[in-house]
Amino acid sequence: MDWTDSAAADEARRGNQQAFRVLVERHSHAVFRLAFRMTGNEQDAEDMVQETFLRAYKQLQRFDGRAAFGTWLYRICANCSLDLLRSRQSRREAQPPETGNESVHWLDRVAAREPSPERLTQSSQIADLLQPALKRLSATERAAFILRHYEGCDIEEIARTLGVQANAAKHSVFRAVQKLRRALEPAWGAIR
């Protein structure tokens, strides 16, 4: 069906599930991409995709059409992922140090799929360091950085998503970049 996003959202709000299906099929890839970058883990990302569409469906009455439907949806996805990261973080802080029993990461999968020695290049060095470095950021810093760097959101948008003032959002992006630059120090030599 050739609905625009806002027409489909209107229809879905009136209870037309097929209209919501159009929106799900249209936005699933982008929501997955964001969820994966936020969580760094395929299974978590799939869970976040489900949770995002479920929350969106329940909250359809509150979508007022002022923002694009996609923007509204990505904000929900960022928030779901943020909730997950924060709950993990607070649980981690409350528990003894991990024993290396974490879920499998994209890096391990990439490494398993492409074990060629050429991967010991600059970009693989960066990739090897990036994921653990991202994990060391606070949930807010990670979210702010992902939204700024990969999703191209502006500061106002990030502030709205995180529920903070613009200055705090800007500062979170900066702290994330600063920590990542420090953590990736060993890889920078290879760039030059």
């Binding site: 799900v24 249209r26 890839h29 489900q50 999968r109 970009s123 990969y150 990542l180 760039i191």
Partner: peptide, 26 residues
């Protein structure tokens, strides 16, 4: 240079039928 180098953050592929799969689960 540093920030450009971080642009490449590979995301696992999802096939063309992915939206339909999400809908079926949802």
């Amino acid at each position: 240079e540093h920030l450009d180098a971080l642009r490449d953050y590979p995301v696992p592929e999802r096939g063309p039928g992915y939206g339909g799969e999400v809908w079926k689960r949802l």
